[in-house]
């Protein structure tokens, strides 16, 4: 069988803050037999512009990403939020331009969040990672409610030797990040994050794991400010891929 050709959309936040999540995604896809290409010109999917009310900026960035990624068999994103922006919002925000709308719809139809792709397209039966300890999973809002990412990361984590999943209360509740919300209403955002962190700590898990770096930065930042130094905050790709 020919190798599946995948374009990896790294996301701007992973590029800036946690390159290892990008490398972990790369490793997972390559281990599963994909040919992975990382278009060098990629920047941001444009979600911050769209959610801040800058439609022209969002449209320009959407067109850029479509041109960069439409040639791939699949596009994979290690984020439910950015993945959904491509999958759900690109066709919406380009609704007025029929040619671009069709290209957006075509791209949307083969764009996947990482864990969803591994489980539902590649149907992987093993992952390279190993992690000794208990994990609690934070369901990021957009991935969960818009892309249906719920069982996929759990199914994959169950394949990691040594992982014990401990569900926390309110795992589906928002962590308070909300993109620009976190820097516009910092105190409210942090107070919401505190509830999430209380639940993480109450679970007793060694690590809190999620699929969206924005949430993870908010949770890690709040845990440390609360004085917790021990709970690890990891992207699901990092746990699944092991050392990269």
């Amino acid at each position: 069988m020919a190798r599946v050709r995948v374009g990896l959309f790294v996301t701007c936040l992973v590029d800036l803050m946690r390159p290892r999540i990008g490398f972990a995604s790369l490793k997972l896809l390559e281990t599963a037999g994909c040919e992975v290409i990382v278009p060098e010109t990629q920047t941001c999917c444009g979600q911050p512009a769209w959610n801040s009310g800058d439609a022209p900026g969002a449209v320009a960035l959407a067109k850029k990403a479509i041109a960069e990624f439409e040639g791939f068999e699949y596009v994979v994103v290690p984020s439910g939020s950015c993945g959904d922006h491509i999958r759900t919002e690109y066709p919406n925000l380009l609704a007025a331009e029929s040619e671009w709308r069709d290209r957006a719809t075509a791209l949307a139809s083969h764009t996947y969040e990482l864990t969803d792709f591994l489980v539902n397209v590649l149907k992987v039966d093993s992952v390279p990672g190993d992690y000794a300890g208990s994990i609690t999973y934070h369901d990021s809002c957009t991935g969960l409610r818009s892309m249906g990412i719920k069982e996929q990361p759990r199914a994959l984590l169950a394949k990691v030797k040594g992982v014990q999943l401990k569900e926390m209360n309110g795992c589906e509740e928002c962590c308070g990040f909300g993109g620009t919300f976190s820097v516009k209403f910092g105190e409210v955002s942090a107070a919401i994050a505190e509830r999430k962190c209380d639940n993480v700590l109450a679970s007793g898990a060694k690590a809190v794991v999620g699929g969206d770096l924005g949430c993870l930065l908010s949770i890690e930042g709040k845990l440390r400010r609360m004085g917790n130094e021990t709970t690890q905050v990891l992207h699901v790709a990092e746990v699944l891929a092991g050392r990269v």
Partner: peptide, 10 residues
Amino acid sequence: PEWTLGRDFP
């Protein structure tokens, strides 16, 4: 600055 009012930034 709003981010770090109530939490750290990793």
